[in-house]
């Protein structure tokens, strides 16, 4: 009995394995962030628009905010910019930006040309802040709750669907939750 059953079980096992492994919809680059539920790393950087001013997430302590990592070398960031502008116009939460491994002049031109949805953009020239946030590809968008914990991370350009489906309900929950 087992002699005939075992190969069948092994075959079904392989089928399941292949169905998962070869699924074309599976995103090989998606990695769950170990930082979900952990305190958002604090940072203070120079303002991309003005090197004499600083941008820090400390000033947002106690507030729910969105943290968006972008760069001018990142084509997908260009794609999501209009979505970020639309989100900024909703005035739901501030969007804190991080300009990652970029050229300051180019970044300033980008914001002039495409519009500036950010409450402030930190200029992360050597990627130290990005490393602390576990950034490995732009664009990445994080949601931080009132207690300063990272609640959610979206890796890919932001869209209104993602915003409405993933972010807004969590923002609501974060507002109701932590006092």
């Amino acid at each position: 009995m087992w002699k005939y059953l075992l190969p069948v079980i092994a075959f079904v096992g392989l089928l399941v394995l292949f169905a998962i492994g070869l699924n074309p919809k599976r995103d090989l680059h998606y990695l769950p962030s170990p930082l979900i539920g952990k305190p958002a790393p604090e940072f203070t950087l120079t303002d991309v628009l003005d090197p004499n001013r600083t941008v820090s997430n400390r000033s947002l302590a106690g507030h729910v905010y969105v943290f968006n990592v972008w760069a001018t070398w990142c084509e997908a960031c260009r794609e999501e910019q209009h979505t970020l502008l639309e989100i900024a116009q909703q005035h739901v939460v501030p969007i804190l930006g991080l300009d990652w491994n970029d050229d300051r002049a180019r970044a300033q031109e980008w914001l002039r040309e495409l519009g500036d949805p950010y409450s402030g953009v930190g200029f992360d020239q050597n990627g130290r802040v990005a490393i602390n946030w576990g950034v490995y590809g732009a664009p990445e968008t994080y949601l931080v709750d009132r207690k300063g914990r990272i609640v959610f991370k979206h890796i890919a350009p932001m869209t209104m669907q993602v915003w409405n489906r993933e972010f807004l309900p969590r923002i609501e929950a974060a507002r109701r939750g932590g006092a």
Binding site: L28, L31, N101, N126, G127, I131, Y136
Partner: peptide, 22 residues
């Protein structure tokens, strides 16, 4: 993490260079 089959030592990606610096 950019080119996922390379080590931080071997990769030419900018993130790898920064992680080496770190």
């Amino acid at each position: 993490l950019v080119c996922q089959n390379e080590t931080v030592a071997d990769s030419d990606a900018e993130l790898a260079a920064e992680l080496r610096a770190e």
